[in-house]
Design a protein around this nucleic acid. Sequence first.
DNA 1: AAGAAGCTGAACATCATGTCTGATAACAGA
DNA 2: TCTGTTATCAGACATGATGTTCAGCTTCTT
Lengths: 192, 192
Amino acid sequence: MGTAKHRIDRRVARTRAALHRALISLILEKGYDLITVEEICHAANVGRSTFYLHYTGKDDLKQHGLDGLRRQLAEAAARAGRGGTFGFSLPMFEHARDHIDLYRALAGGRGGTVALGTIRQILSDLVRDDLAANSGKHISDAIPRELVVQYVVGAFMAALTWWLDGGATLPPHRIDAMFRRLMSEGAMQARP
Amino acid sequence: MGTAKHRIDRRVARTRAALHRALISLILEKGYDLITVEEICHAANVGRSTFYLHYTGKDDLKQHGLDGLRRQLAEAAARAGRGGTFGFSLPMFEHARDHIDLYRALAGGRGGTVALGTIRQILSDLVRDDLAANSGKHISDAIPRELVVQYVVGAFMAALTWWLDGGATLPPHRIDAMFRRLMSEGAMQARP
DNA sequence: AAGAAGCTGAACATCATGTCTGATAACAGA
DNA sequence: TCTGTTATCAGACATGATGTTCAGCTTCTT
């Protein structure tokens, strides 16, 4: 039952893709809040009435875009099984580098906090599983596991954002090495 | 020159206070984005035209509220000189406990990311100074100082948010102890 | 080639925004 | 307490974005 409807009409695919592209480009240009549906349609060369045939509004369009990102991240995460504890970080940095403008729109300075919540949630699930799998090897007394999860994800998001806002000039493996060093040695302890 | 204008008219003070209170209460109720100026005025029992005599719009009202928060945090930070490296954390947790509903509106689940940017910026300045003061005692090779700043602040904000969303039941000194332990020992290293 | 499905532009009602008015009420200072 | 000043108010108005509808046209699929 319910297999994917025979296929997706080319016109539909083109329209939706154009709208998503327009949204990302506009976010980079002026920030999410100031964007209007009319502007999105103009940038995408799509009739305004057509927009409402696909999405209920600006937020709905954004949400569908985030669902796509979620799928991508889930795949990247699946490929990230290896890498030991907190092995998620390197694949995430690499994924960000491969979709740099998307990330800069969603998590960078201009894009503001459009997608940070979504990314944070995905990563939280990832880290939570990671900690559960390697449970014996970590802090277990007094510090709730969920706090550790949030701590790790918060620190990672900060590192990711810093990297993106700096132009992502460092190669992924370098920023990842720094992040992992901070994670393992602590921020105040480590000395040359 | 330019001393504080003789005084602030009581009516002005009352109106502005009422508007700020209404905004916070509405944020907790339905989230910042869905709030309308008219709703704020109704909740505050203030004429809509009066609103525009004081603020240019919803964002302006929010911004002035954040300026107030900024002042409070600056004071708390000044009192936080003691406490060794990263001594900012305990005063911040205590300040959050003392203004719990404000924080839950600005940084908690329902309030979303309304003020996270502002708080993050204030803390970043604080931590940056802290690191500069104790420069010799910390990581200096290979890891840019600004990355450390963002890492620390990101981790702290995550801990703060987790604490708030959990109802802030733990006393400040307990959550602070956990945070500092994660900071000093690292999240993957520390074992019982 | 024909029918189905998507796209379009235009018109429309609705709502929030921001500005302005003249009248009323509350204030500060003497 | 009295007086001049200043804030507040309700209401009207123009504007711009939203979301819906429709009839006609274009582009897909088979």
